[in-house]
């Protein structure tokens, strides 16, 4: 019964969406806002990666909200998992083999470096703060799997998350004070295609990268703690 009703419901939705989609042909250029960003993006923001200029400049407010959502998920998950966490007997963790241990310790800084490269160059190449942050978090996952007794310091990740969010808001407020608009790109735009260009975009992406990295690592840390 439940299945039949569900399928009927889905059929109705599918019919409706088809009617609407008929007006949105696939693969043809049609958008005016997107066209404006491609034409004016480099000139107005200094970033050669137009997606970055949309994410961190034109629609930076969305990104602030997005960073907040991830922050909420990290602390919400912490709140759900820490209240009522039962004290478990200390279980002995079997140490990793020497090859695994050494390999993890060797790869850890390299992965961090690669993540940092991705978010520092967000305004020039594909990538950015979120992507770089995810790579940084993967380095921590590797140490959890390989060097099992290692943990990230809770105090450190808390500091990184809070400071990251705070710097984002403060950069926005400085823009408001200097130029009259919240999150305005008040720094010099520089020459496109150079690392030191695009004003506040690299600053915000570095902040986002650090913050996202520590939040994702914190989420994984909390989940691993629970499963032990």
């Amino acid at each position: 019964m439940r299945r039949i009703i569900s399928i009927l419901l889905l059929g109705i939705i599918a019919l409706g969406i088809t009617l609407s989609l008929a007006k949105i042909p696939f693969g043809t250029p049609k958008t005016k806002v997107g066209r404006y960003y491609i034409d004016k993006g480099v000139e107005e923001t200094g970033a050669t990666n137009i997606v970055t200029s949309v994410v961190v400049n034109y629609r930076a407010f969305d990104t602030l909200g997005e960073v907040t959502v991830l922050f909420i998920a990290a602390i919400g998950l912490g709140a759900v998992l820490t209240t009522g966490r039962r004290k478990k007997p200390e279980r002995k963790i079997e140490p990793a083999s020497l090859v695994l241990y050494t390999g993890c310790r060797f790869l850890f800084p390299l992965i961090l470096l690669f993540g940092a490269y991705i978010f520092v160059h967000g305004h020039l190449t594909p990538g950015g703060g979120f992507q770089g942050g995810a790579i940084v978090a993967s380095a921590f996952v590797l140490t959890y799997l390989g060097c099992r007794e290692r943990r990230i310091s809770e105090r450190g990740s808390k500091l990184a998350e809070s400071l990251g969010g705070l710097i984002f808001v403060i950069v926005g407020l400085v823009g408001l004070a200097v130029g009259g608009y919240f999150l305005m790109n008040f720094l010099p735009k520089g020459i496109p295609n150079f690392l030191f260009s695009a004003g506040i975009i690299p600053i915000l992406y570095i902040v986002i990268g650090v913050k996202v990295g520590s939040e994702l690592a914190g989420i994984i840390d909390n989940l691993i703690e629970e499963s032990e």
Partner: peptide, 21 residues
């Protein structure tokens, strides 16, 4: 069009947040 790509970035992060919770 760069805008949908920016929107998807946001949507992915929101999806991850909901998933983790």
């Amino acid at each position: 069009d760069p805008v949908p790509q920016a929107l998807v970035l946001t949507a992915i992060v929101i999806g991850v947040a909901v998933l983790a919770l």
